[in-house]
Amino acid sequence: MTSALVLRRAGPGLTLQDGGRTGFFAQGISPGGAVDRLALIEAAALLGCEAGDAVLEMAGVGGLFEARGDLRVALTGAPMRASLNGEPLEWNACHRLREGDTLDIGAAQAGIFGYLALGGGIDVANVMGSRSTHLLAGIGRRLGEGDRLDAGSDPRPERTGLRLEPGARFAGGTVRLIEGPQTRLFDSGTRERFIATAFRRDPRGNRQGARLLFDGEPFRVAGQLDIVSEIITAGDVQIAGDGSPFVLMPECQTIGGYPRIASVVPDDLAIVAQAAPGTVLRFEFIDAAAALDDYRRRRTAGHDLARRVRPLVRDPASIPDLLGYQLISGATAGEDLR
């Protein structure tokens, strides 16, 4: 029988996500997928699974899960308060669950989006090339009490008890931008003020976009309300009608009428997505060629995962088969997540 996690209590923002759905942009469907792509790569490294597997994305708070059969879970992304049968459970780690175990995942302690992955992935229908829920397109739905997460066939059921040093992205900081088609519609004074401004994450934000707050005059270009509607993509920084920036997330629309001052590079989008309300964000422009070099370097280096994955229990005597963990081969370059 298929192992599964059954939801006994569900937070309000639980959806299944993977690396997204490409090929339907011309029909108005943005790629979607997990807002924190690094969390997918980290979960796959912990489990030794494919980085393209479907995982559970949890916005702000998780839920109460009951294990049906034996399975492995990995917990990545925003660290959330977690316990297994009442005992505290380490985040950024993979764990074994047995039939009847109760996994309780509470509120995020830093960041916003936490991820729960299963060994073998979550078995859910592939719709138009992806298993990700796209609420805007009406593909999939939010999960609730009573829903089941069926585990796929686990390729490495013995591999467990690993932890990982997470990539930094839960405390705001500087976010890299590259120029886009409308950057120069903003005069140089406005662009300089944008770079000099300390923004704070507004509580308003979801899988489509994140609004930023700041002190000072609204950011403006001339003729803002009758600009021609244009293609928009995840990472674009739109200046909304009230003059405040809105950073587009993976489930954004595909066309928008507000001007965009720049685009956040893909590897920094999680810094914005994971910025809890009030977190300070600053921006800097980098050259597109330099941004491409950095993007390629990170993937060629496999996101340093081989170095970051470690045994969960630090006393080697308690791990009889330490050599069997194959720390290196669990790493993935994440190419299938692009």
């Binding site: 590259i178 886009g180 021609v228 993509t233 674009d236």
Partner: peptide, 14 residues
Amino acid sequence: SQLGLSGMLVSFAD
């Protein structure tokens, strides 16, 4: 024009 890290935009009018 470039549009993001992996995109290009060919515009025929503004």
